[in-house]
Amino acid sequence: MATYAIGDLQGCFTAFQRLIELIRFDPVQDKLWLVGDIVNRGPDSLSLLRYIKQAGDVILMVLGNHDLHLLMVAAGKAKNHPSDTIQPILDAPDRDELLHWLRHQKLFHAEGQYAMVHAGLLPSWSVSQAEQLAREVESALQQDNFQELLALMYGNDPDHWQNEWTDHRRLRVIINAMTRMRVCTLEGKMNFTYKGNIQSIPFGYFPWFSIPHRLSQNSTVICGHWSALGLYLTDNLIALDTGCVWGGQLTAIRLEDRKVFQLPCAR
């Protein structure tokens, strides 16, 4: 029995099929963890979404910003971008069933020594607090009035966290940190515009995972989202977005021994 974590898929269903063949994935005894951004930009988000849904408990995923964008567009709270490739999902006969299932996926997952999130965790958040905060967002997404959350989800402000917030700012910061953050200041102020490599980060900002004394550092965080960072492994970080949708690679890691599997992707 093995658990494999896989980086951002973004609709690259063929690459995903090739990768699970490469790792000799056995759904009877193995499990897959997916770091989010299941859909969008790639050529076959619909088939990928159907496959993951039908796999049941064998596959565990967390939501990424592109997955949330799909929900936003479907609810009429955002418009398709020119680069979006989610229309086949919106036109599918099983659209409502797929979107309902997607709304009920996790934003954050913690298990044993590992914690999985799409983008990152603010330095002031422990794993246990992050799990509680994620449950707040997940609960709101799963309610019948979930569109109220979607209507207030987008926005770069506020760019920091305050424990005492109880209005829409609270959920927005949780979502932005967990699905969009790459860098922040020592105090946890986020910069959502920077997408470059680790060597060119603006002055005063740092990779979220390198902030000294961040409260989640005793767990190994598995994440994606930052394709310019690429595969990045430390004792307490497994970053897996290697830019498959951009013609990079699709990456899997076997958690039991940290063996890495990669295959090239067509742009």
Rank of each mutant, 00 (worst) to 15 (best):
Y51S: 05
L229M: 14
L233Q: 09
G64I: 02
L133P: 08
T85L: 04
Q147Y: 06
K259Y: 08
Q113W: 05
L48I: 02
I238G: 00
E131V: 04
D159F: 01
D157G: 14
I198R: 15
G243Q: 04
E187V: 15
D257F: 03
G247F: 11
F206E: 13
N156V: 00
Q142M: 15
N197G: 15
W101G: 04
H225Q: 11
A110T: 01
D67L: 00
V245D: 14
H69C: 11
I198K: 12
D235I: 02
A55I: 08
Q249P: 03
N236W: 08
V58L: 00
D67S: 03
L237Q: 09
R258F: 04
R50P: 12
L263T: 07
T234D: 10
Q87L: 10
L263F: 06
A92C: 12
P82N: 06
L149W: 04
S83N: 15
A228G: 09
E111M: 05
L152A: 08
T14L: 12
L122P: 03
E138N: 13
D257R: 01
N218M: 09
A110V: 07
K106R: 11
M116N: 00
L63Q: 11
V28R: 12
G120D: 05
L255Y: 01
L186E: 10
D30I: 08
A228H: 08
S128N: 07
V39D: 01
Q87P: 09
G76H: 14
L22R: 12
R103D: 11
G196T: 00
C244Y: 03
W161S: 11
D91I: 10
C265E: 02
Q262W: 08
T3S: 04
N176P: 02
W246M: 07
P123H: 09
H225G: 11
G64P: 10
A75E: 14
V62C: 13
M178V: 04
E138P: 10
R169I: 07
L60D: 13
E256P: 13
A130N: 02
T234P: 15
L46P: 05
